[in-house]
């Protein structure tokens, strides 16, 4: 017991810990006093209607913009003041709800850039050749997300579903410890969704992720724990079955979710 509280004090028990994170845009409270923690290797789904603050939460965690108040701890280290790239180098990754890819580059170059970003030699003035270790890592990632048929294709020529898969590949580069997935299933066909679920299921167990997902079926299948957000606050938190059967959650989801 005392050992556990000591662990909590130095914060190593959690991969990610948010303490009273608040984000205001002018007079709008996008996030109000969010406190949550995620253990290493945990798979967490974040549910909530549009405008519930899910993506804003991700932006505060990755440092795309800083929270108005509160703190963000990543593996026991306070990263609240860190720029985004410093957090990424510590093992945090994210995907974007609307794909942010390099449209003019090939699939391989996109993934290669991602691998290079979290390793040394970001400023290297030597061209990569075929036996570059990072090039191998990139090829590997392309296989993991099932894009091996289109590795030479330019991103703008990919289908929407393939672009979503590439988003995930970029977030898996290097040695991620926690990946934030912002609606990876949005706009995918049923078969593509199945593919996504299998990709997520095959990730190594030490790699935790937080997934924002509208589709309850996908969310409940890929997560150990579910957090329900509403109006910038945490509304419910629990095991998938608990949340699924919770009458208040059902009312929110089925009843339109208005106050």
């Amino acid at each position: 017991m005392s050992e556990q509280s000591l662990k909590q004090d130095i914060g190593t028990e959690y991969a990610l810990e948010l303490r009273g994170v608040t984000k205001q845009f002018g007079a709008l409270n996008a996030l109000t006093d969010i406190t949550m923690s995620i253990r290493p290797g945990e798979r967490r789904a974040v549910l909530g209607s549009n405008g519930a603050g899910k993506t804003t939460l991700f932006n505060c965690i990755t440092g795309d913009f800083p929270p108005t108040s509160g703190s963000v701890m990543f593996f026991g280290e306070d990263v609240t003041a860190f720029p985004a790239h410093e957090r990424i180098r510590r093992g945090l990754r994210r995907t974007y709800q609307i794909s942010l890819l390099f449209d003019g580059l090939t699939v391989r170059d996109n993934v290669y850039l991602a691998c290079r970003g979290v390793s040394r030699g970001r400023f290297s003035m030597r061209r990569a050749n075929g036996d570059d270790a990072l090039m191998h890592a990139a090829e590997n990632l392309i296989d993991i997300v099932h894009l091996d048929d289109v590795r030479e294709a330019t991103v703008s020529d990919l289908s929407y579903g393939q672009q979503r898969q590439l988003e995930i590949a970029l977030a898996l580069a290097g040695a991620p410890r926690l990946v934030l997935l912002d609606e990876p299933a949005a706009g995918l066909s049923p078969s593509e969704r199945k593919d996504l679920v299998s990709i997520l299921g095959r990730l190594p167990t030490h790699m935790g992720y937080v997934i924002i997902e509208h589709d309850m079926d996908v969310a409940l299948r890929v997560a150990d724990r579910v957090t329900m957000m509403h109006n910038g606050k945490i509304f419910k938190d629990g095991a998938p079955e608990e949340i699924e059967n919770d009458p208040e959650v059902q009312a929110l989801y089925l009843g339109g979710g208005h106050d």
């Binding site: 795309d64 720029p83 985004a84 790239h85 990424i88 942010l100 003019g104 850039l113 003035m125 580069a173």
Partner: peptide, 26 residues
């Protein structure tokens, strides 16, 4: 240089600075 990691990353910064930061680039 335009085809080296540095040059590629620079073009990445031009097209998509936010994503580049999210890939670990300063």
């Amino acid at each position: 240089v335009s085809r080296t990691p540095f040059g590629l990353a620079l073009q990445g910064v031009r097209d998509n600075p936010r994503r580049m930061a999210a890939l670990g680039y300063s």
